[in-house]
Structures are given as C-alpha cells and as structure tokens.
Design a protein around this nucleic acid. Structure first.
Length: 128
RNA sequence: ACGGCAGGCUACCUUAUCGCUCCGUUACGAACUUGUUGACUUACUAAAGUUGAGGUUUCAAUUUUUUUAAAAUACGAUGGUUUUUAUAAACGGGGAGGAAAGUCCGGACACCGUAGUGCGGCAUAGCGGGUAACACCCGUCACCUUGGCUUAAGGUCAAGGGCGGACAAGUGCAACAGAAAGCAAGUACAGUUCGGCUGUAGUGAAAUCAGGUAAACUCUAUGUGGUGAAACGUCAUGUAAACCAGUGUUUGAAAGCGGCACGCUUGAGCUGGAGGGUAGGCGGUUUGAGCUUUUGGGUAACCAAAAGUCUAGAUAAAUGAUAAGGGUUCGCGUGAAGUGAUAACAGAAUCCGGCUUACGGCCUGUUUUAAAA
RNA sequence: CGGGAUGUGGCGCAGCCCGGUUAGCGCACACGCCUGGGGGGCGUGGGGUCGCAGGUUCAAAUCCUGUCAUCCCGA
C-alpha cells in the first residue's frame, strides 16, 4: 500500500484553488471540512489535496505549521480509503475549523470519518 | 537558602516504522524525433440547466458537460532510435533560530540617466577610537544619584546612570505666586564715595545677570539621489499593433519611479470609452565583511597572520508523525522508594552587521533579607 | 515583502499640532423631583494607571525614545 504524498498529489496551482472555492461542494465532520471539485489535471494525478489552517483562529505560525503537519499526516495515512474506491479526478481542500490544537489521535479519527463521508457523497452523486 | 542585577553557555537524546525536501553516486552523459500527453482558445455534434419573449411547446441569449477537428513553444511527465549497457528506481549524505520575530537603523547587490545645480526635507550631535557602514560597539570627561570618610565652605573615594553643539544672530513661550518674567517698572531694610550706587529680605523652576527654555521655531557642523528580490537578467508569449472620441508630431505629446524648479536624455505617441487575452519556466539563490582553533597587537571594542572547514535552500512554501526507552526540570511525598507532568519563547523566504522585544535551563560574579558562628 | 492609522469613564468621540490652574461632550448608570403608573423631562452625583515603560521640563494626555495591541492599504 502506498503511503507517500508526492508533489503531484498536492494542490498547488492558484487557478485550480480559485476554481475549487468558487464552484466546489463540501462535506464536513467537525472540526474538519472538505471542499472538493471534479476536475482534471495536466499531470494526470487523480487526487490533489491541500490543507488549510486559518490565520484567524491561530495567530502563531508555529501552531499553524503544527496543524497542517498533523492533518497532512492523517490524510497521507488514510487516503487509500478514497483512492481505491473512487473514479474521476478530484481537487480537495481540507480546512481545520476548530479553535484548539488537535492531537494526532483525534485528527486521525476525524479524517477517517471525513473521507468515508466524502466517498458516500460522491457515490450518491453518481447514482442519482 | 530565596530573590534582584551583570556576564557567559545551552536550546533534550537514542532506536524502530512511515513520510517530505535538496545534493551526490550507481550512470559526466550526448545527439535525434517536428513522438505522445498536459492549461487555455476557436468551430462543429449532442445533452442538461438558467433567463427573456411567446403562450403550450417554439424562438433567442447564456452557462456547464460532451463528440470531432484545428492549435505555437519554454517547462513538466512519459516513450522511441543511435552511440557501449541498465530496472525507472536503489543506496548514501545534508535539512530552522538565538531570537528565524518586530521591521527600528546601517550596508551588500540590482535597476532607474553613473544620477548635475539650487531650494526643500530627513538624520546625527562632548572628546577619542573600532567598523564596509551605522542612530551600533569600546574607552573617557563634564554632569546627576546613592553610600563611606572628612569639613567652615568644600573636598575625596566607591558603585550606578550618563538620548550631552549653540539662547554673545533672530522669533516665540513662561500657569500659580510675585512690584516686575523682558525694553518697562521697581517694595522694605541696611550700607554708601550721596550716583534710582551696592547688599540683603520676600515670590518663584528661573529675578538686570551676556537671565531661563532649542526632546520650542531656529542657527551651526556633518551626512544623505530614488526604488527594493514581485529589484533585475533570460527563455516562451497563438489572438487585438484592431474599433470610437479628444489631443499632439520639430512652434514638441509623453516618458526617463526623485517633493519642487532649472538643466540633461529619448522623440510619436498619449488620455478616455467599449471590449479581448492572461500561464508561466530557469537564473538571481546561498562561498560569505563566512565559521572554528591557535599565535601576536590593543585597557577594550576590535585588528592581523597561520592552519582547518563547507554548514537549509523551500516557493499554496520541506525540515514531520507514531511507538518504546533514557535524560533534564517541576509537582505530590519528612526523606528514600514511588508516581504524575514535561521543555519556555517561538518557524527561514535575497544576504549580512547591529538594536529592540519574548523566553526554559545551567554556571560565574555581586548584592538585599533571614538564620547560624 | 512594503506602506499607513488608532489606543482617553461601560460604549462612541473631543482635547494633543502651539505643555499650565478642575481632562470635557453625547449615550448609558445611581439618586431625587414632576406623573395615579410607565414613557418623557428637569436637577444632582458616581465612575479616568489618558495602552505600557523610560526620559526632557518647575510642570507631560500633549514633547522625545522604546514597546505592546488592534485595524486598514499595496503586490
């Protein structure tokens, strides 16, 4: 099983990000929120993800870095849940909405829940 | 012993699994193909949605998805051929700070015309030294504060502070008190060479004294061109270098990032309307006023020489996560054992020298208080 | 990365440039009066480390230096 998170699996283009927030749909599992959009990429990656920690809730750069690292780690170890069950190409943005520092165990648990919800949402769209 | 102040050091470690980034090696690699593919755009096919007209399923506009075709290249990914070979990876190494912070000063570097003249603006301010430079650092003096000794005044020693040019150019300001706070007046007492001459008292921070005040305007001396890595160079850039109005072409528009004027340079566009397009890649970029050690010079800041050494380079932005063990400090406990918590402040963004602020631990010196001798 | 502004009673502001006698204004708050009561009006009163620290000065909200916080702007 592939746990890596290479450059091509990260969402980086400004254009894609603007499009994602303008047109994307969202699923949330507090304190996490996932914004996603079915699109396609130049380098044929099937999933591109980014992690966001808002400056409004966390003033310190150290805290924001810590949150992003924890969430990225949780995504990295759980992305197979989505990767193996999905068709099409998606841009993802994962936001942290809480106001307190997350620990890894909680983040991991919530991430699994969030990705499962995302799967259900996508398969519902397909069938309906 | 606790606390304060000053100075110095340090900024948890080891192992396992998984992950990120850069470099190197295997393998200096080189040449070719108009290879394939990737943003966006245009036309066409089909479907769905929205809006308007119309009035019962038509028309128009528009959005999204989709079919086919056209479509330039940097760059990325991925193939093929040739030269002597090869899986598309493996292995090895490096990877946040003392403040990376605030952006308060000074530089390097780059471009703007090698940037001229005048005015203005800004900064600095005892003296000497250090430095690439500084508003920084070192030394020192006037002066101030505290304490000791001594005294008629005062002097001297120790510690700490020490943002300090000019009011003998001009202008302004001075509450309350006071006769009077600056060109006008003058209380009381005493002295007197009899001159509104001198002294004392009283008010006040300051009282005819070259008065006080410049962290008041100002003056003096010195320095200062501007803009900042989204600087700048380079590769690529299909479609609009089109349309309408105004203005201008040697009688000079406009530009050249100065606050203004002069001067200088370029020399045909510029302004507005309505609209169209937009995508970046590479370099700059980490070898530098570098770091460590030793020796010599200097009160010191610092300088010189020799030897050794290479120490982050990301870009929607890496430097991490989990588990186990150990260490440090703190809490509970009289102590031991035990047990619980656990590093404070904080995250490079062109690079250096300072300043300021935040902050855990250890060491040294000094000092207050308490206890004991 | 660069530029700018603001901190004054519970809230919103003035005063600062050019220092001076008691730091004002509106709303809010408390008490009293007018009314049968409410609303409203009138009167009286309380409430201020002038963000923080240091300095200049006889004297600082005001001048100077440093610092903290908040907000805004450009790319």
């Amino acid at each position: 099983m592939d746990f890596s998170l290479a450059k091509k699996e990260r969402l980086k283009s400004k254009k894609h990000i603007e499009k994602l927030f303008a047109e994307g749909r969202h699923v949330s599992n507090f304190p996490l929120k996932l914004v996603y959009l079915n699109t396609h990429f130049a380098d044929r990656a099937s999933l591109k993800a980014m992690v966001i920690a808002p400056k409004k809730n966390f003033k310190s750069a150290v805290s924001r870095n810590r949150i992003k690292r924890v969430l990225r780690e949780a995504y990295r170890l759980n992305k197979h849940v989505v990767f193996n069950n999905i068709e099409g190409h998606y841009a993802l943005a994962i936001l942290y909405l809480g106001k307190e520092m997350p620990d890894y165990e909680m983040a991991n648990h919530k991430m699994q829940g969030l990705l499962k919800k995302f799967n259900e949402e996508v398969s519902n769209e397909k069938t309906s």
